[in-house]
Design a protein around this nucleic acid. Structure first.
Lengths: 362, 362
DNA sequence: CTGAAAGCGCTAACAA
DNA sequence: TTGTTAGCGCTTTCAG
């Protein structure tokens, strides 16, 4: 479809050093303008053009001037790719994500915040959310981009952290044990306590939990927070009241239905994430259970949809954007070769009070 | 997860060529694993490795098998960059944005939606929101990535559309006249009419507008929609009631203050975007004007913040994500060489009713 | 001060 | 079936 009409069979016209007689019309060519073409057009060698572009010493002012003019006229811009291949430094940082969804794009905004004014460029890469690629996408993406395209990378929600790249890598919300990577995470445990304590203060004592994907650290920590809060209140946890929703809507619906259909159903539910909480809301409606009148629900994440829920969801908010910012600051410091003291940061979460919680029915 | 305990690390048989004593134990090397290393480790030539990787014919099953194993063991992954430089086709599409903010990230999600299952990978690129780079960032970004890294690109909110790239490019929400580029935009005019008509139906007759950045097409169209709706209702527009807020908070505050301080202040304000509407809400609060009791406000965009406003903002919603999807569908078709019939699409907007509008005070 | 030449990691003719 | 060779666009010694 793309014809390659690069006229490289045109012998570059000889030009004197004075460069006065450059009367070539040379309209902006079709397609990509290469350094080759600039050189030919300016009547100098490729390396001279390169020097001019990179401001290297050893080029006469006249030449610089002339070449610069030609570059402007042709609208030449160096290819990031070709340059990356040759150089070690690229001045680009990468954000690697499994897919572009609410969480990762929010992180992305934070990264963008932090990158402003640093002179770095930003590339976000996703392998397209391939299902088969789920396992080890972080490793693949990293090897694909790192050391050639980017100087460092922020890995969003990686499930494996033993990656080895030859540049700095910082993980945001890592999901595999105590990571070997510098990381920024939300304080899941504290957040969960916050959510459950809110329920406790309201007077609830029979509180169920829809747990998350047990293989993820965040899910485990949230469950742990739930247990701790209950224990601190001197309450026993009833394992029967803790079905798993796997962090996703369908499973959560099943879990919620199970929980809310019980004769001794809880008066409040703490969900491992907003998606699960939303599913709970739906099931409650289905079952004719009023929220928050007969049932209180607390979520986790504060995704945009949670505001729009009916009723608006009370939830634990993660400072997602902030996480992106901190990760980037760490990354830039690491790239700069500074030694960063705190390589594993945990950011506090906060409770967002909306309308899905109330005191238990009397 | 998967430890390789396969003892196939048998030292490759004899190596011809100048291969000196090639009894390297070669544990997974530090840093990037290159094809070179795989070849050496497998005792074959680089091109053979390349053939194996790309599934080219002409390699014995045994060799394929052996090389594959070595690749796995070494964790080799082809460099996107090097490959891009060589090939014309990369199987990557790019999204070029000025910066990662709410609008562009929403578009990004749409693009990601559309890219799922197509086998394409996705790269989003931002020059880092450089202020000095504002002018012509689209041209620069395009030449930097296009034809080397990506097969085609989606340009988000470009201010210049006469870009020339040697691959397909689709613009989303282009801001410069009838674009020369295939484009997807929201129906700004219709949206504005929708917003103003809502106010009209409520009974307002004295409706002011905070206009947008006059150099942007979207702003002009929204203003045009306002005028048309007013005209259709048989109402004259008072030019004094149309200060510019430039699409941004600070200027909008000034504009709103001007508007609301008038003795004959309007009973309703249509703002060119949500940022301006939010600013208006703030000024109203400052001035002790009740919304929606004494003043109705309608915005445009439906950014996330608009739900959280006090009161929640009634606004015109753009199908941003959908725009990203359509643009991507177009782009993929273009890349595939299909001829796309409708190269300039306009998507309808819709009114989101919330609590910032009410009938005018009597 | 300028240009020729050697690659960066990879693919694709073309030879062997 | 395999290896050799020539680049993709660029930077960088190192001679002229």
């Amino acid at each position: 479809m793309k014809l390659d009409s690069t006229p490289d069979d045109v012998v570059p016209a000889l030009l004197g050093g004075g460069g006065a007689g450059t009367t070539m019309p040379a309209p902006p060519l079709r397609g990509r303008v290469t350094m080759q073409q600039v050189a030919a057009e300016a009547g100098v060698s490729i390396s001279t053009v390169s020097k001019v572009i990179n401001g290297r010493y050893g080029v006469s002012a006249d030449t610089v001037d002339h070449v610069t003019r030609v570059i402007d006229r042709l609208g030449y811009e160096a290819s990031l790719i070709a340059r990356s291949l040759r150089n070690r430094r690229t001045n680009v940082v990468g954000v690697l994500v499994m897919d572009f969804e609410p969480f990762s794009t929010e992180v992305l905004k934070g990264v963008a915040d932090a990158i402003h004014g640093t002179g770095y460029e930003l590339i976000a890469y996703s392998a397209g959310g391939h299902v088969e690629a789920r396992e080890g996408w972080e490793r693949r993406s990293l090897t694909r981009l790192m050391a050639t395209l980017v100087d460092g990378a922020v890995l969003v929600t990686p499930t494996v952290t033993d990656v080895q790249a030859d540049g700095p890598v910082v993980a945001v919300d890592p999901q595999a044990g105590p990571s070997a990577l510098p990381a920024v995470a939300a304080h899941n445990l504290q957040g969960a306590r916050l959510g459950v304590e809110h329920l406790l203060e309201l007077g609830h004592t029979r509180i169920g939990m829809i747990t998350g994907r047990s293989d993820l650290m965040s899910a485990q920590q949230r469950e742990q927070g739930y247990r701790e809060a209950m224990a601190a209140a001197g309450l026993d946890v009833d394992e029967a009241l803790m079905p798993s929703g796997g962090f996703e809507p369908d499973l959560s619906q099943v879990a919620a239905r199970e929980l809310l259909s019980r004769a001794d159903r809880p008066t409040a539910v703490f969900a491992a994430n907003d998606l699960s909480a939303l599913a709970t809301l739906e099931v409650a409606r289905e079952l004719g259970i009023e929220v928050p009148g007969q049932l209180s629900v607390v979520g986790f994440d504060n995704i945009p949809e949670s505001v729009l829920a009916e009723p608006p969801l009370t939830t634990v908010q993660q400072p997602i954007r902030r996480m992106g910012q901190e990760a980037t600051e760490m990354l830039l410091a690491l790239i700069a070769g500074e030694d960063v003291h705190d390589l594993d940061r945990t950011l506090d979460t906060s409770l967002v009070l909306r309308s899905s919680t109330a005191p238990p029915p009397s």
